[in-house]
Design a protein around this nucleic acid. Structure first.
Length: 724
DNA sequence: GTGGAAGTCGTTTTT
DNA sequence: CGACTTCCAC
């Protein structure tokens, strides 16, 4: 492929970014402006036109999915697999470094990755050891303290001691936690980055090696980098590497996880001579949708400033629907979906986006009622399931006997008579000795420090693990997994669980064996065994692609997980104050701006048609709440919006909510002159809206939300209501 | 060690 | 409201 071909079909700024001479680049790429395309073409350009070896290029992404996609597109563009090129997530690359240089990083060779669930368990244990009661010192709080500090590149030793009780306690937990991880050979997500950052700082020769190896570094989704990631990057880049950062400050939605939007704002100061290129032409959405998105995001301050434009069609207006309640909202969405599919469109051209996962249920029910196939993204990852984590824990113990998190998980799973008492004893001993639980148990058995019964259970557990570990070399990965499941009795154990759960768990265990069977190692390192490699990928990679991916289904997901995707038809559900923006964010201007960026992300997912829906009444945590339409809707230029009014049924939505069973309820109120949603007045409570009616006739219970007095339940015949 | 009752708490979650 | 945890009685 020659240079003109590489630049074919690129607009001027895109071509400029792709063919720029070596140097630092900041590419501000608006939604749908061909960001990945530019990145991939840039790499191809370096290789083909500049004669740069793929070996000299590192491309960093945030998700495994993005990394895979980049690799695939590059391969397609180049016609060959670019060997030697490093493409991966920050965490994946950091892990690779630590695995290669485990000695310099002061880690055991077979260190394991601690995921957030294991992390929390470990912290709970530390709380117990420190006598912190869960009530006043929730483990979650410590977890976020630790993670936030690690994200900032701050170790316990770096924290300045204060006399503040909270700070002191958190710090002591942090210290203990670091200690526990070190003895167990465990590394959490933040630690991967922190540790590899320190690895370079402490080993100039090593750093030099990598700096010379990677004169070209490209980073995707740069707005999502946190402090350590940025520091990591700066250290690696040093003075002699060229960095290309691609990102969009308007799509920074992970601030709550430590992402620093400042990084993108500061890039050109830290990397002198940076040329900034803006990609503002959008190839995804209609002009109307873009205008709406621009209208919303303009309300944020301190933006780097971009205005998306398109040469595409004006498109249809954005529809705004006010549902009476969340059921009505869901019903409306499904009816519009039916219409769209009726026009011959595929279901997977449709996405329903929402702010919080709790919203998905009502939507699911509505889809189910109309038999519309759907798929929910997010939720539980395969490798996060209980039964899978159990078998993984056994596999981890085979690799590293000191992995305390794994041992804690399965020492009594399936139950083998090792109760809390025994485990407490082992923990205490391990603490005193500063050793892992496994070696504590070993020592206690030789010292006869355990009761006979406990000693025999513990040693049978240990020899079980040992037996399995002895076969790691000789068996295939899936054979090993199968054997482990059989020998440990996990399958029978989970099968005993009642309901369909037990069976589902057994099936998942089978699926796990198949996953092992088809597993392809990611690294071609012959040093690391396939088991070690597999365990790392189970921890770092969601195992997202599931089998049903190919089924034509409506896509449901949170706004966060929609980033990077696009759909011809998009519904944004629940655009209400206190839900979106979320009520935890409305007070704080910084967080509110992040919510607004989330709205911007949502709107720009839509290609041809966008619906915004909200509910005037919504049940949240079992309580009715009444929210007005989201401020973000009001920020959309009114000429882009069109309100959808549904016939006359609006005042009596329950009638078309669940026709046969519930219609009678509204009849019963009708006889007395009232209907759901109607405004009424009460002699004491004043004016309000009828929310719900239970029962019929004069004894019917009627729930009313009064403007001043709040929600009350009254008996109809005594309430002395008057229509307003 | 289980199962039921009672209590709790309630965003978003690339790794 | 409902998912999740915790605690207590068998």
């Amino acid at each position: 492929m020659n240079s003109s071909q590489l630049l074919d079909h690129l607009n001027p700024p895109q071509a400029q970014a792709v063919s720029a001479p070596p140097g630092h680049q900041l590419i501000l790429a608006g939604a749908g402006s061909g960001k990945t395309r530019v990145l991939v073409h840039r790499i191809a350009w370096l290789i083909q036109q500049q004669g740069i070896s793929p070996h000299s290029i590192m491309a960093v992404t945030f998700t495994n999915k993005a990394a895979r996609e980049m690799r695939a597109r590059l391969e397609q563009l180049l016609g060959v697999n670019p060997r030697g090129l490093w493409v991966g997530t920050f965490h994946g690359l950091a892990h690779r470094l630590l695995q290669t240089h485990w000695q310099e990083a002061k880690l055991p060779q077979n260190f394991q990755i601690l995921d957030s669930d294991d992390q929390l368990r470990l912290i709970k244990r530390i709380h117990q050891a420190l006598n912190l009661d869960e009530k006043s010192w929730p483990a979650r709080q410590s977890a976020s303290y630790i993670n936030a500090h690690k994200d900032e590149g701050c170790r316990a030793d770096h924290v300045i001691e204060t006399s503040d009780l909270y700070e002191r306690t958190m710090l002591s937990v942090y210290r203990e936690y670091e200690q526990a991880c070190q003895t167990a050979g465990l590394v959490d997500f933040g630690e991967l980055l922190l540790r590899s950052h320190e690895l370079w700082l402490n080993n100039p020769v090593l750093l030099r090696h990598y700096q010379e190896r990677f004169p070209f570094i490209l980073v995707d989704e740069f707005q999502d980098t946190n402090t350590v990631q940025y520091a990591w990057l700066r250290v690696l880049a040093g003075q002699q590497c060229w960095v290309t950062a691609v990102g969009d400050d308007d799509q920074s939605i992970y601030g709550w996880r430590g992402a620093k939007i400042e990084n993108i704002q500061q890039f050109d100061q830290d990397f002198p001579g940076t040329s900034t290129i803006r990609l503002e032409q959008n190839y995804r959405s209609t002009a109307t949708i873009l205008q709406a998105a621009n209208g919303v995001i303009e309300h944020n301050f301190g933006r780097l400033g971009k205005t998306l434009h398109t040469e595409g069609e004006q498109g249809e207006a954005i529809s705004l629907y006010a549902g009476f309640n969340e059921q009505d909202e869901a019903r409306f969405i499904v009816s519009q979906i039916d219409k769209w599919i009726g026009l011959g469109n595929r279901r997977d051209s449709i996405a329903i986006l929402y702010r919080s996962n709790a919203q998905s249920r009502v939507l699911e029910e509505a889809l189910l009622r109309e038999s519309v196939p759907y798929r929910i993204y997010g939720g539980h990852r395969f490798y996060d399931r209980l039964e899978i984590k159990n078998i993984l824990a056994y596999l981890r113990l085979m690799v590293n006997r000191d992995d305390d998190a794994a041992l804690e998980r399965v020492i009594n799973t399936p139950t083998r008579g090792i109760g809390g008492k025994t485990i407490d004893g082992i923990r205490l001993f391990a603490r005193e000795q500063g050793c892992s639980l496994w070696s504590a148990a070993e020592k206690m058995i030789t010292n006869k420090a355990l009761s006979n019964r406990a000693a025999s259970s513990v040693s049978s557990f240990m020899s079980l693990v040992q037996t399995l570990a002895d076969q790691v070399e000789s068996l295939q990965l899936h054979e090993l997994a199968e054997k482990a499941i059989a020998l440990t009795g996990l399958k029978e154990f989970h099968g005993k669980e009642k309901g369909e759960k037990g069976q589902a768990r057994q099936e998942n265990l089978d699926e796990f064996v198949s996953a092992c069977r088809v597993y392809q190692p990611t690294s071609d390192d012959e040093d690391t065994s396939i088991l070690v490699d597999f365990l790392a990928s189970a921890a770092l990679d969601a195992g997202e692609e599931q089998a049903d991916e190919f089924e034509d289904a409506v896509q449901l997901m949170t706004l966060h997980s929609a980033k990077g995707l696009e759909f011809p038809l998009v519904f944004m559900a629940g655009v209400e104050e206190n839900l979106f923006p979320h009520k935890m964010s409305v007070e704080d201007p910084t967080r509110l701006e992040e919510e607004r960026r989330l709205a911007y992300v949502g709107i720009t997912r839509a290609m041809t048609k966008l619906y915004l829906t909200y509910a005037e009444t919504r049940r949240i945590h079992g309580k009715e709440s009444f929210n007005s339409v989201s401020r973000f809707v009001k920020e959309i230029p009114s000429e882009c919006l069109q309100e959808v009014r549904v016939k006359s049924t609006v005042t009596r939505p329950i009638e078309y909510n669940r026709p046969p069973a519930r219609a009678r309820l509204s009849d019963s109120t009708e006889g007395l002159g009232f209907s759901l949603g109607q405004r009424v007045s009460h002699p004491i409570f004043g004016e309000g809206v009828i929310l719900h009616v239970e029962g019929s006739g004069p004894n019917a219970h009627i729930e009313i939300n009064f403007d001043d007095a709040g929600t009350k339940r009254l008996v109809l015949q005594y309430a002395k209501l008057e229509a307003v």
